[in-house]
Simulated scan of single mutants.
Amino acid sequence: MQNSVIAIIQGIVEGLTEFLPVSSTGHLILTGKLLDFSGDKADTFEIVIQLGAILAVAVIYWRRILNLLGLIRMKPGSLEQSDSAHKLNLIHVILACLPAMALGLILHSFIKSYLFSPYTVLVGLVLGGAFMLYGQKKQAKVQAESVDQLSYKQAFLIGLYQCLALWPGFSRSGATIAGGLLSGVNYRATTNFSFLIAIPMMVAASGYELLKSYSTLTSSDIGFFAIGFIVAFVVALLAVITFLKLLERFKLAPFAYYRFALAIVFLAYLLLNA
């Protein structure tokens, strides 16, 4: 029963935060600390529930994904499609993913050894929130109203900003959305692009980690992992659709202030329980 409760809580946390600009990794580390859930099993569990969140985005954007792969032609008017010409292609996605993938491979051992702690997460939450406020305030003149108007340069710039999220707590979506604003992409377009490039980024990162840690899995863990996977999938499905609507209304600032508040509250908790 206790394992099921942990699986549900962590699944909800992952589903809610993976695509919001608040850092899912940071939240999982912090809630893992509160639940006393850490170690190899916890690390593998986080990978599995991330795959559940990835599946949710793939379901929402399945037409766009098949369009990028050249398997179908999309009609204008869907959630992720504008009325402009179908210009987004795999080169945009590759340019946006390569910087963080390359740097992540180079720094993987350092990041795992030194940056996955509650205190480093709190630093990431604050720095990421400050960057989001900066991106909102200094938003460049909009040159791309939809993902189909993104240039290769803008896609690559967003990819460079995504490297900031290698610091746990910074937030991949926060870095890419704020980076998109600084690169002349409007809120909705940069959010859609952020979600799209999350799929290959997370599949690559999760796949790499899963190959390294699959030996920790046993048959008795199947139910525990399945609960977390399903909960993360369902919650992420609802969170992405809701976030697209909220972002257009509230922008990034409320999420940044939430990050600051969370950092303060959790720092107090850590100090009181030191």
Rank of each mutant, 00 (worst) to 15 (best):
residue 184 G to P: 10
residue 154 Q to K: 08
residue 182 L to H: 01
residue 132 M to P: 11
residue 160 L to S: 03
residue 144 A to C: 09
residue 162 Q to Y: 03
residue 164 L to M: 14
residue 195 F to Y: 09
residue 188 R to P: 00
residue 143 Q to N: 12
residue 196 L to H: 00
residue 153 K to F: 08
residue 193 F to K: 05
residue 174 G to K: 01
residue 148 D to H: 11
residue 154 Q to N: 10
residue 150 L to M: 13
residue 164 L to T: 05
residue 150 L to D: 03
residue 143 Q to D: 13
residue 133 L to Y: 03
residue 175 A to M: 12
residue 184 G to I: 05
residue 197 I to G: 04
residue 181 L to T: 01
residue 190 T to Y: 00
residue 193 F to R: 05
residue 136 Q to P: 04
residue 180 G to D: 00
residue 194 S to R: 09
residue 177 I to G: 02
residue 189 A to H: 01
residue 152 Y to T: 00
residue 195 F to A: 13
residue 134 Y to F: 15
residue 173 S to E: 00
residue 164 L to W: 01
residue 186 N to S: 11
residue 191 T to H: 04
residue 198 A to H: 04
residue 162 Q to K: 12
residue 137 K to N: 07
residue 134 Y to R: 06
residue 186 N to P: 11
residue 158 I to V: 15
residue 139 Q to H: 14
residue 145 E to L: 12
residue 137 K to R: 15
residue 152 Y to Q: 01
residue 133 L to W: 02
residue 153 K to D: 14
residue 169 G to H: 10
residue 191 T to I: 08
residue 195 F to L: 14
residue 187 Y to G: 02
residue 145 E to Q: 13
residue 136 Q to G: 06
residue 173 S to N: 04
residue 151 S to W: 12
residue 179 G to N: 09
residue 171 S to D: 09
residue 184 G to S: 12
residue 150 L to E: 03
residue 190 T to W: 06
residue 194 S to D: 05
residue 138 K to P: 11
residue 196 L to P: 00
residue 182 L to Q: 05
residue 147 V to N: 04
residue 187 Y to C: 00
residue 154 Q to Y: 12
residue 181 L to C: 07
residue 131 F to C: 09
residue 139 Q to F: 10
residue 194 S to P: 06
residue 149 Q to M: 09
residue 138 K to C: 13
residue 196 L to T: 01
residue 184 G to V: 08
residue 172 R to N: 09
residue 131 F to R: 02
residue 148 D to V: 01
residue 144 A to T: 07
residue 197 I to A: 04
residue 160 L to C: 15
residue 136 Q to I: 03
residue 159 G to Y: 05
residue 138 K to N: 14
residue 172 R to F: 03
residue 157 L to K: 14
residue 194 S to M: 11
residue 175 A to F: 08
residue 163 C to P: 06
residue 192 N to S: 14
